[in-house]
Design a protein around this nucleic acid. Structure first.
Lengths: 105, 105
DNA sequence: AATATATTTGACAAATACTGTCAAGTCAAA
DNA sequence: TTTGACTTGACAGTATTTGTCAAATATATT
């Protein structure tokens, strides 16, 4: 299993690659640099809107970034749980079932 | 894929099966009947502690109930998201990776 | 039908978590 | 040693959660 970067790491890498400063990017999101700094270091979670805006500003693939963002939210939910992996499997079965039902309609 | 009951449904079924009233069970949890009523109808989420206590009081398999409870929490997190199923798959890959690393230590 | 009991509902309060600002602090480069 | 970029933590405002209570509704029994 390969290592997958945290959203924050992706954001920082891409920002630096583009030679942008925290202040440049945070201005586009209309937030303080402090918050962006924390997001990049995974000290805070971005909001849905912030992630989508960040993808735009930094030319990151919106879908990929958002999927990784959602995944981290899920993992956060179960991070302290012994039974997290089991719960994930069950959730996947159930979402499959739910989506199947959606298609039937 | 078989239909899997909601935690609330399980709780209500088992409570009724045992001939207990909301008041009997809610007393054991030290909460108002109103809250238990809402939990059983999935209008509110139980806390981790409440779920574990409910398993005890109602003689439900603690692990099964808790896994189902966690699963619902996960699904709630992504319920409005187009990309939820994708995110779940990624989360599963990542938790596998994380747990593998844990075992290496 | 009238009463009694069980459950549901929604308004409210208190506690907790979230989101952002600001100013002071650290760190590295010039 | 000054400058600029980033980090840190205290703080305020807001939103969400968690529970209580009393009134409304539903279900049972007489």
């Amino acid at each position: 299993m390969e290592y997958i970067k945290l959203v924050g790491e992706l954001l920082r890498e891409k920002r630096e690659e583009k030679g942008m400063l925290l202040r440049h990017v945070s201005a586009k999101l209309d937030i303080d640099t402090a918050i962006l700094s924390k997001i990049e270091r995974s000290e805070r979670k971005a909001s849905r809107e912030q992630i989508l805006k960040l993808a735009e500003v930094l030319d990151l693939n919106k879908e990929d970034l958002f999927v990784q963002y959602l995944s981290e939210k899920i993992l956060f939910e179960i991070k302290d749980e012994e039974l997290g992996a089991k719960a994930l499997k069950v959730a996947e079965q159930q979402i499959t079932y739910i989506n199947k039902k959606k298609n039937e309609r």
